[in-house]
Amino acid sequence: MKRREVIKNVALMLGGAFSAPTLMAMDNWENATKPNTNGIAFSLTETQQRIVAEIAELIIPKTDTPGAKDVGVPAFIEMMLKDCYKTPEHQSFIEGLDSMGKVKFLELNTDEKRGVLKFLEQESKKITSKTTPFWRLIKELTLLGYFTSEAGLKASFEYVQIPGKLELIKLKPNQKAYAY
C-alpha cells in the first residue's frame, strides 16, 4: 500500500469515525445506556494489543534507555482504559484501533507507520468532541506509563525520593529534570 493511500484511508476513517452524526449517535447511546463504570466490557483482541504495543513503542522507542515495551506500557494502557476511563473513551479508542486495522498498520514499514501517526496527530487536533480522541489517549497513557515506571523514570530523570531541603539552583548544561 502506498503512503498516499494510507493517508487517504486514515482520513476517511477519521472523518467517518468522528463525523457529527456519529457523535450524535454516540451521545444518544451514552444517554440510553448506563455508563460502563467498572469497565468490565473493555478488552482488546490480540491484534489490537499488537497495534497498541507498536504505537506505544513508536512514541517512546527503545534507545540507549528502555522503550515503552520494555517497561510494560502496552498492558498498562489496556488496564488504565479499563479501570479509569468510561464508555466514550473506550469507543474512541476502539474506533482508532479499527482505523489502524483498516490501513493494515502492522504491515507498514517504520517510515509509513510514523507517517500515519503524524497524520493522526494533526487530524486529532481538529476534533472538537468532548471525548478524548484515540491519538491523545494512547499518547497520554504511553507517556504516563513510561515516565512513572521504575525503569523509565530512573533512566529519564534524576530521581530524588527525599529531597530533605528546598533550594533555588541554577540549571547545569544538559541537566535532567528531577523526579520525586
Binding site: 512514541i59 517512546i60 534507545t63 499518547k139 497520554e140 529519564s156 540549571l171 529534570a177 528531577y178
Partner: peptide
C-alpha cells in the same frame, strides 16, 4: 517548570521527543 506531561499536548513522538522530555 513543566514536566514530562508537557509532551501529552505537544506534537511529536520518537527518540528525540523522548529525550527532550527528560529535561525541565
Amino acid at each position: 517548570r513543566e514536566g514530562w506531561n508537557r509532551g501529552v499536548g505537544a506534537d511529536g513522538f520518537g527518540a528525540d521527543f523522548k529525550q527532550g522530555l527528560t529535561k525541565p
